[in-house]
């Protein structure tokens, strides 16, 4: 049905995943692959940019749940950013804001990672 694609950008220690299109049960494997690749490369500081995501279904939400444990075990995190109101509402209904940090912009999320890094170094 609908199209979905991801792209990944390396920004220093942080990796940004850009989502585009419709994320549902059929397209979820694409995002799973993207996460798997990052984790294989031991990249655990991940920011997801939702700017171009039109729709997310429960199966799409499941992808984030599938990887969060592994990422946090390795002292990393998945931070969500730039959601449209509609997408945010779906996350919000399920209580995701309690489980994930959600930022207005990608930069805020990256800054947060950098701050944590600084604290660790001190």
């Amino acid at each position: 049905m609908a199209e979905f694609s991801t792209s990944v950008k390396d920004a220093g220690d942080v990796n940004i995943i850009y989502l585009k299109g419709y994320l549902d049960a059929h397209t979820a494997p694409t995002l799973e692959n993207t996460f798997s690749n990052l984790i294989d490369r031991e990249r655990y500081s991940i920011v997801v940019n939702f700017k171009d995501l039109a729709y997310i279904s429960s199966a799409g939400l499941g992808v984030f749940m599938a990887f969060i444990e592994k990422v946090r075990e390795n002292k990393g995190d998945i931070k969500l950013s730039a959601m449209s109101d509609k997408v945010f509402n779906i996350f919000d209904l399920l209580g995701f804001p309690l489980l994930y940090e959600i930022f207005k912009t990608e930069d805020e999320a990256i800054t947060k990672f950098k701050e944590i890094k600084k604290l660790e170094n001190q």
């Binding site: 429960s58 199966a59 939400l61 499941g62 992808v63 749940m65 599938a66 444990e69 209904l93 399920l94």
Partner: peptide
């Protein structure tokens, strides 16, 4: 439940 499954 699997990690990626949940129920509202």
């Amino acid at each position: 439940l699997d990690r990626k499954n949940f129920v509202s």
